[in-house]
């Protein structure tokens, strides 16, 4: 299982993979389709621990590669109230399915986000986060990026778990 996946089907495979790892530790879990960003994407749910991996691809998504593994999963309680409570593919569930992922992108800015900002300016942040964050929050993110990159001079490697 470590190296030989049947298929590299993005979130479809990795969602199942995630559950298999938990099962091997005697932790029940399930993967399900259709809620993240509307149709076609796979999520993972651990009822026992109250966790949801909003999107299987989150584990390697470019903008979340600086998110610590311990912070990667969303709250099942939030998902039950704000995502799973709505029919698949319908708002506001679709929007809400992104909330944790977007928050982690802003809280733990990845190398890719730093580069976007330094190449394309603040507009790249506004465009990405305008539906989820206030202007003030985006301003604060910009300040942090400027600080992290030393004014777009340094681009530290992602180091989420160290």
């Amino acid at each position: 299982m470590s190296v030989e996946l049947i298929a590299r089907e993005g979130c479809q495979s990795i969602g199942a993979y995630d559950v298999k790892l938990a099962n091997a530790l005697n932790i029940p879990g399930e993967h399900f389709n259709g809620y993240f960003n509307g149709e076609g994407h796979r999520s993972v749910k651990f009822e026992l621990t109250g966790h949801v991996l909003a999107h299987g691809d989150d584990v390697y998504a470019a903008y979340q590669t600086n998110t610590p593994s311990s912070e990667l999963m969303a709250s099942l309680e939030f998902w039950k109230e704000n995502v799973l409570a709505y029919p698949k593919g319908e708002e506001p569930g679709v929007h809400n399915s992104w909330v944790h992922s977007v928050n982690s992108m802003m809280k733990f800015p990845a190398w890719r986000l730093l580069r976007d900002y330094c190449e394309d300016g603040k507009g790249s942040l506004t465009e990405r986060f305008k539906d989820f964050a206030s202007e003030k929050e985006i301003d604060e993110l910009e300040e942090r990026i400027v600080d992290i990159t030393n004014g777009c001079m340094d681009f530290p490697e992602n180091s989420p778990d160290n």
């Binding site: 993979y17 995630d18 530790l25 932790i27 026992l48 621990t49 593994s69 990667l72 778990d161």
Partner: peptide
């Protein structure tokens, strides 16, 4: 270091690295 299932679920996400 595992103390409970929450730690197990969080830790298992570390496979990405």
């Amino acid at each position: 270091d595992l103390t409970d299932q929450k730690a197990g679920v969080r830790g298992s996400a570390g496979y990405r690295y």
